[in-house]
Write a protein that binds this DNA or RNA. Structure first.
Lengths: 348, 348
DNA sequence: CTTTAGCACTCCAGGAAAGAGAGTGCTAAA
DNA sequence: TTTAGCACTCTCTTTCCTGGAGTGCTAAAG
């Protein structure tokens, strides 16, 4: 059943008022907000209907109305005016994303903090590869007899390197052979296959080289597995304590622990540029009384990231959505122009 | 003026009782705790003295006593029985530090989380170089005409690398010259000097190489400056909400914001293996009502790290101190055996 | 001089009672 | 269908009260 226009307008007023004040909204306030074209008594009748239909709730018999999740949903889908960011805001977002060339992890975690402090709710952020990460190229740089640097370029063109300490002295002359072997046999394959191949080539390689080889592979496997696993970073959980709905330490603690411990359960939709989850629409119990807004952004061609914001169901969806998608655009742009360049493989 | 033994014993009981219950301690309870050798009236006289001397405080005229910062200080210095870690605890600490070979940052942040969750208070952790970080060695690996990998080993033997995108095509033949230049002119010097030298060599180098050179130096400066700047990581701030003294959302919010925003002001003593700061002994206002326990650990020969724990003045100093130094030892061991190997310079 | 018992006193915590205020539902009239 | 009027409901705040825990002081005992 479709609601009348007036009912919708009333619902909108209730939602927007409640978003601001966090207090149940009364008929009189609504009448005033609507310009006095109708009396509070009329509003009361309409309100009773809206409660009946499940769009509003009444904390107790004689108090104002509060939007139900269903009410928020309708508001978000139909009533909400999609906000545009002001120039100043866009400016501010871009400014906070003026990051130097740093590692992906660090960029992301800084972006997370920026989102949280700009939107004033806790935020989470992650970058996910679309496919399993593989090595694209290896390089070994001798340092001295007992150590060398291993450099690995990954499928997404990120480069990782570390100093390896050698158990056995290795002849520098032999390094190129090893590098060739690494690049021909261990690139472009998933980590689980790597260990298998290591066994296969065991006999073709002199023992002291084999030790270095297996150390290198161990390092590669570690790095690749970590890279293909989504790391979720949360920021600004303390923002919660400013909100009246989390003045109760137990509630706040529950949600904050959830945010910092069981991040894996945070909503990670895999379609569309933006998703809004209201109260019970969330799967996790800890989020049943909160809403989540998530947006996605692109990292080069192969990766996609998500930024999300967690707040009370009473969150200011219009503003949050606008700002969040502003950030998502900013991040997409950031990763588009910078780093992660050519597409052709460089396998040897 | 030295306290009598009995006064000390009473103080000890008060502190330990209060640590557990967070409620003012009464004379009767103390008498019971002391085995009934004296009556509560006697205790009351002693308590009055202790208040007079500033070791205890009385929230209001007719309530039990609470230790003052001065009282805690005496307790920590003289009365506290230095706890030993049980085997199970040591085991647990070492287990949580079973980290794979990962980057320093990541190891540290994981260690911070482990500390916090083991001690049940918020924790912070940092690694600081004793001297300014410099580059020890450079390497350039061509990828294709338009990009190459820059690898830099730093003074502490950590290795950083990144893919650089070139504005101009560079002849691969010329790379070795550039690497030699980098290693002869830009190693072992602080970052501010690097830019100066860059100017100096400008004329000696053909323009398309110079561009690559300056990109490399820009990267190096970035990384080095970031590395020599102490990054402070905090973990487990939400633990605060479990404590009765932080059930008030405002108080909790204040401290949590401090922990996540102005970490630079956290106590960073530069001497001794462990330091305990009680209440007003802290410089930062935000910490005036809290206590901080900090321990230091070694990272190889050149770096030193700090782990700290923040809690109410009523924190269980004995346990915290024992566990924290357990962690510090564990970390020292971790960084001692793994990575960061030879001492001789490899400058070329 | 130190310790103890006794007792009046203080202060907090928690519950009950009361009043104010905001808002509702319902009825009857426009 | 809308509106005005009115009684009613529920919460929130304030006030008052009481029980209990703990103290400080005094006077007696060791």
């Amino acid at each position: 059943m479709e609601l009348t226009d007036r009912k919708k307008q009333i619902l909108k007023v209730v939602v927007e008022d409640y978003i601001q004040t966090a207090e149940p909204v009364g008929s009189k306030a609504i009448a005033a907000e609507m310009g006095g074209s109708v009396s509070s008594a009329t509003i009361r009748n309409e309100l009773a209907d809206l409660v009946e239909l499940g769009y509003l709730e009444q904390p107790h018999t004689s108090s104002g109305r509060v939007p139900s999740p269903k009410g928020y949903r309708l508001y978000v889908n139909e009533l909400m005016e999609r906000q545009k960011l002001s120039i100043a805001e866009t400016e501010k977002i871009n400014q906070s994303l003026q990051l130097k060339m740093e590692e992906l992890d660090r960029v992301i975690s800084q972006a997370g903090r920026a989102v949280s402090s700009f939107i004033n709710y806790p935020a989470y952020i992650t970058a996910t590869g679309k496919k399993k990460m593989t090595a694209r190229r290896f390089e070994l740089l001798p340092v001295d007899e007992r150590s060398c640097i291993v450099v690995m370029m990954m499928g997404d063109n990120r480069v990782k390197s570390q100093l390896l300490r050698l158990q056995l002295k290795v002849d520098i002359e032999q390094m190129p052979t090893l590098v060739t072997l690494l690049n021909s046999h261990f690139t472009g394959i998933p980590t689980d296959e790597m260990n298998q191949r290591l066994m296969n080539v065991a006999e073709q390689v002199p023992p002291q080289l084999f030790l270095l080889l297996s150390q290198t592979i161990a390092y590669a496997v570690d790095v690749l597995e970590e890279a293909s696993q989504r790391e979720i970073i949360t920021a600004g959980a303390n923002q919660l304590l400013k909100l009246p709905e989390f003045r109760d330490a137990d509630k706040a603690h529950e949600l904050m622990s959830f945010l910092s411990d069981s991040k894996e359960n945070l909503p990670m939709p895999d379609d569309g540029p933006m998703k809004i989850l209201i109260g019970p629409e969330n799967v996790s119990d800890a989020l049943k009384d909160t809403s989540v807004v998530v947006a996605s952004y692109d990292i080069g061609d192969d990766m996609r990231g998500l930024i999300g914001v967690v707040g009370p169901t009473r969150m200011d969806y219009a503003t949050v959505a606008a700002r969040l998608s502003g950030f998502a655009d900013g991040l997409t742009r950031l990763f588009g122009k910078q780093e992660l360049p050519p597409k052709e493989d460089t396998k040897e």
